[in-house]
Write a protein that binds this DNA or RNA. Structure first.
Length: 175
DNA sequence: CGAATTTGACCTGCGC
DNA sequence: GCGCAGGTCAAATTCG
């Protein structure tokens, strides 16, 4: 396998678009630096492209383990899942945003010759997911879709908000 | 040796 | 109901 090094500043050429795919009316997107980027009004102008109305209900019925498991509340009705799609022009797929991700799947998409990778935040209790996809149109564009919000501090102390802001400025100047 | 990745199987929603 | 497409699981494998 190939352990690609995460994208550094000079590898990210430009940031084209951010798509705000919000499923719910929940306005609380605290702590997300995506919101920060969107609020900067720079090249990261957020655009709502679609509202994912599909509930994506998945509660793992587990027919064998249906016993004393009183987990009807497993699906906690709170479908406050906001998805943000980055469209980044980069040579690498793995954009290092300061969090630690564990890959849990990879599927090939129909209209895309490149596979889509599925990642999950490795922090316990943090169910933030992201998927990375490369456009078959031009392989220099990577679409990173975040889903959920992190409820914990960044793992890397070297990549704090200030560094992210520095990246923002780099994005802005190179765009 | 522990953690992360790979990869095929499995599940679910949707359109026909 | 069937097949397809997208999403997830988990055992095996690989890496640091």
């Amino acid at each position: 396998m190939f352990h690609q090094s995460p994208a550094s500043h000079d590898q990210i050429l430009s940031l084209n678009n951010i798509y705000d795919i919000c499923d719910d009316k929940s306005k609380q997107r605290n702590g997300s630096f995506l919101e920060l980027m969107a609020s900067m009004g720079g090249p990261a102008a957020a655009a709502i492209v679609s509202r994912d109305s599909s509930k994506q209900r998945r509660d793992h019925d587990h027919p064998s383990s249906s016993g004393n498991e009183v987990d009807e509340f497993k699906e906690k009705k709170k479908s406050k899942k906001c998805r943000y799609a980055f469209q980044t022009r980069s040579q690498v797929d793995i954009l290092d945003d300061g969090y630690r991700w564990r890959k849990y799947g990879q599927k090939s998409v129909k209209n895309n010759k490149f596979p889509r990778s599925y990642y999950r935040c490795t922090n316990q209790g943090c169910n933030v997911k992201k998927q990375v996809q490369r456009l078959s149109k031009d392989d220099g564009v990577v679409v990173t879709t975040y889903e959920g919000m992190h409820s914990h501090p960044l793992e890397k102390s070297t990549d704090n908000f200030e560094n992210i802001l520095t990246q923002m400025q780099i994005y802005h100047t190179t765009n």
